[in-house]
Amino acid sequence: MIQAVGMTKQYGSRKAIQDVSFDIPAGSIVGLLGPNGAGKTTTIRILTGTLPPTSGTAKIGGYDIFEETDQAKRQIGYLPETPPIYPEMTVEDYLDFVGGLWGIRKKERKEKVEKALTAVGLLEVRRRLIGNLSKGYKQRVGLAQALIHEPKVLVLDEPTIGLDPKQILEIRELIRNFAKGMTVIFSSHILQEVSALCERVIIIHQGKIVANDTIAGLGRQLGKANLEEIFLSTTAGGKE
């Protein structure tokens, strides 16, 4: 469903990611793990078609993101690292705007906004200005935005970063629910989060994929007991 094909991104002479390939089957939820600066955001941006790779490509639901851009994009709901919100808009107006961007007709838009609001638990704050919401609620607005066009694939870049423990659990619960009907990839460097949400992980280190398997499978291969040990052993070494 989500396919990375030899993706490389070069900034000047520095390679942010190098020959990244993986294939995430439909219906699964996968954590993209890596230390700071490993290349998680770069990978995700290329997958969502918001950043062109130096070489390689991505395919979403079989559609090439740079050749069949529109079809590929329609499969994806994307929550960037910083939620792309307009503080001066109300939650409802914002979602209506995003629905419009996706070309949803006014009549259906109302329904879809309602659905997205319900899905992320924003019904009570629908008429509030986004700028006045807590960080956790802003993140929910970001999630609702990603869901509005009912995508098959959900791509989340560090969805719980900067939230308090209660909000983290709430967002995690939401993601767990979405994963029931969608293919989800999310980046994180919180290991408990990844082990709590998914069986499969892709670990990226200094722009290269160093592991791509189930947590259990990796544990067996590397002789490690848990994700933390797997993470530390695969991302050890190299320049810091």
Partner: peptide, 13 residues
């Protein structure tokens, strides 16, 4: 600056 450009780029516009 605010990162909303990414939203505009994600949509098929």
């Amino acid at each position: 600056k605010s990162g909303t450009m990414e939203l505009l780029k994600t949509a098929p516009v």
